[in-house]
């Protein structure tokens, strides 16, 4: 049972991470900074509950807002670069954040033991849930409530003008600008929203697993974050969820016996999907629907 709860928890957190990259991908920005925002959310909310004994919800909110603040700041220089240059610039940001967590020491004594972040040793004892008597099923439920809220909001966004504007910028920046859209506003807003979602995911993750360190925030995770919406497609929010279930649930878990070969298969799947399903995994469902219709 715990094993399946663990998978559900991973899928939930990764979906948040993927959705944070999804909203940026709508505007045509391929960002590797999402894991950096995730790390900011994880560490800041961890510091608040562990060292300052905050309640979980304000701590999560603070982590998300702090991450979105940094995303807002990253958004401006990111405007000036596109495509590969943006990928490199955002990798640099994520690495800076990772190296800060690697060197970040802030420990205090509580009930006779030292708690807090201890540099390369990582941030242990983020035990808000266990000390407050949460069952692991309740933690997973909390994560999924947030996943559903974020997905519902992004779904709604696609039905209002703001969402259409995001896609317009992703389709053709020049045409969007010539139709009166301010690229700065749109791209920075998307970056800020993406940072918020990633920061929320980071805070939930840190508290759910009770231990994070710099290895959690490597480039591999940034690659996962952006590959979910690419693999799932940007037609709607379910593509990202589908891709996370596919990668984390099926590829990583069901094919455990393949060990490191899974990463090679992961790369292969991305290439195949891009070639044969340019609209992503969601098109699996859409094509079936349209066949029924005709």
């Amino acid at each position: 049972m715990d094993y399946y709860l663990g998978i559900l928890q991973t899928i939930g957190v990764h979906t948040l991470l993927g959705l944070s990259a999804y909203i940026l991908l709508l505007t045509g920005q391929v960002s590797m900074a999402q894991i950096g925002f995730f790390a900011i959310g994880a560490y800041s909310s961890g510091v608040l509950t562990v060292i300052f004994s905050w309640h979980i919800y304000p701590a999560l909110a603070f982590g998300a807002f702090l991450a979105s603040f940094f995303a807002f700041l990253v958004g401006f220089p990111a405007l000036r670069v596109k495509g590969l240059m943006l990928v490199i610039a955002t990798i640099a940001f994520s690495e800076i954040v990772r190296l800060i967590t690697f060197n970040f020491v802030w420990m205090v004594e509580k009930d006779g033991i030292m708690v807090g972040a201890d540099g390369a040793q990582g941030f242990r004892e983020i035990r808000y849930f266990t000390t407050n008597g949460w069952e692991s099923s309740q933690v997973v439920l909390l994560i999924w409530i947030f996943v559903v809220i974020v997905m519902a909001m992004l779904w709604w966004l696609d039905r209002v003008k703001a969402g259409a504007v995001l896609r317009a910028v992703g389709n053709d920046e020049l045409a969007a600008q010539s139709s009166g859209i301010d690229l700065t506003t749109v791209k920075v807003a998307a970056m800020t929203a993406g940072g918020f979602i990633a920061g929320l995911g980071g805070g939930l993750y840190a508290h759910a697993v009770s231990y994070v360190d710099h290895i959690t925030f490597t480039i591999l995770m940034a690659t996962f974050a952006i590959s979910y919406p690419i693999l799932g497609g940007t037609k709607n929010v379910f593509g990202t969820l589908l891709a996370v279930i596919f990668i984390q649930g099926i590829l990583i878990e069901a094919f455990r016996f393949l060990e490191d070969w899974r990463l090679i298969i992961f790369g292969l799947i991305i290439i195949l999907v891009m070639n044969f399903m340019p609209n992503g995994l969601v098109s699996l469902f859409n094509s079936r629907k349209s066949k029924k219709g005709t």
Partner: peptide, 17 residues
């Protein structure tokens, strides 16, 4: 230069003032 992923209606909506 149109917004190909948007519907005809949305193309006008985006530019609408």
């Amino acid at each position: 230069r149109l917004f190909g992923d948007l519907t005809v209606w949305q193309n006008l909506w985006v530019a609408w003032r």
